[in-house]
Design a protein around this nucleic acid. Sequence first.
DNA 1: TCTTGACACATAGTGATCCTAGGTATAGCG
DNA 2: CGCTATACCTAGGATCACTATGTGTCAAGA
Lengths: 104, 104
Amino acid sequence: MKAETLKGHLDALILATLREGPAHGYAVIETLKQRSEGAFDLAEGTVYPVLHRLEADGLLSSAWSVASGRRRRVYRLTRRGRADLAERHTEWTSFVHAVEAVLA
Amino acid sequence: MKAETLKGHLDALILATLREGPAHGYAVIETLKQRSEGAFDLAEGTVYPVLHRLEADGLLSSAWSVASGRRRRVYRLTRRGRADLAERHTEWTSFVHAVEAVLA
DNA sequence: TCTTGACACATAGTGATCCTAGGTATAGCG
DNA sequence: CGCTATACCTAGGATCACTATGTGTCAAGA
């Protein structure tokens, strides 16, 4: 997977992993890898800054927790984040249609 | 359409517009707009540098021509460009599946 | 015990690429 | 003659995913 392929779509993917419930950053990475069957195997340095940005934009909120001696920052979708995800999903669908219309 | 959405996929789109035959840059822009029903309404400053890069990479070849007093640089897919397009198409399909698996 | 790997977080700097903004030039129309 | 569409070009800016690097805990194995 080339670096640029994902660009502009990573936010939606990360928001989507949190749709079913809160999770910490490392778990988000694992979820992305599993759900995509290995296609999205992202480095921490890719995902953490996005989580920070999404929180700064008010789409996520976070809280520290501790599990088995390890500190975790647990993220959850805000109301705005959930709405934003829905919008991004719609845009994604439009984008796919447009690309398919050209590639087909 | 946000700028980043297209990133990493523009090459494939432009190559695809040349699959049915050679065309000049301005026509590529028009074709993209029409086939995508307006979704891809790209500025010349977006498309021309890509054409130059694709030619530098050996995926396109070009030749000057003159039509009704206007000079045009006509691009055509090279053999490698055609193979590359096919590969990018396959990668696009994989990418869509992976994203859908996460978003769904 | 010591080392390795998995877990878990963080940030600075790099590179690719799409867009903005500006430029040149011809043809056709009102 | 000015305006619009056609047709090309490039420099610079902004965004964003990635690389590289750092900190620290815990469990398993040599």
